[in-house]
């Protein structure tokens, strides 16, 4: 009984995570410019990886492997926004112009 609940929960989390990965991929292909793609990637990848790894941690049980996977979740959740910030700032300071729906439209 317990094992069945464990497996179901893990399966659901893995499928949900894979779905977010998929959305991130579509975003990477469809969105019009670098800045909008960073939006999609930082959020969807962090959540996708977090969900899949959480499912795997439940599957592995909270012994050695489980703790290692939780360390990986912490790593992904920390590194994803940080990498997004560093990359966005680098692009901004290198002078990459964002895409606007109406050309010449500049936010204040």
């Amino acid at each position: 009984m317990m094992a069945a609940i464990q497996a179901t929960l893990a399966g659901l989390l893995i499928v949900a995570g894979a779905a977010f990965f998929f959305i991130g991929t579509i975003g990477l292909l469809r969105l019009p410019d670098f800045y909008t793609r960073v939006h999609a990637v930082t959020k969807c990848d962090a959540l996708g990886a977090g969900l899949v790894l959480l499912g795997l941690a439940i599957l592995a049980g909270f012994d050695g492997s489980g703790i290692r996977i939780i360390a990986l979740i912490a790593l992904v959740l920390l590194s994803s926004p940080t990498a997004g910030h560093a990359l966005a700032r680098a692009a901004w300071r290198a002078g990459l112009e964002p895409w606007y729906r109406k050309s010449g439209h500049v936010g204040q």
């Binding site: 995570g17 990965f21 991130g24 991929t25 990477l28 670098f34 793609r37 960073v38 990637v41 990848d45 996708g48 990886a49 899949v52 790894l53 795997l56 599957l59 592995a60 492997s65 996977i69 990986l72 992904v76 994803s80 990498a83 990359l87 966005a88 680098a90 692009a91 290198a94 990459l96």
Partner: peptide, 23 residues
Amino acid sequence: PDRILAANVIGTKTLVVLVLLGL
């Protein structure tokens, strides 16, 4: 930046794939 971002995304996916393979 687009290329670096894509590399970063592939890196995250590879990480998850490695854990999946491990299990």
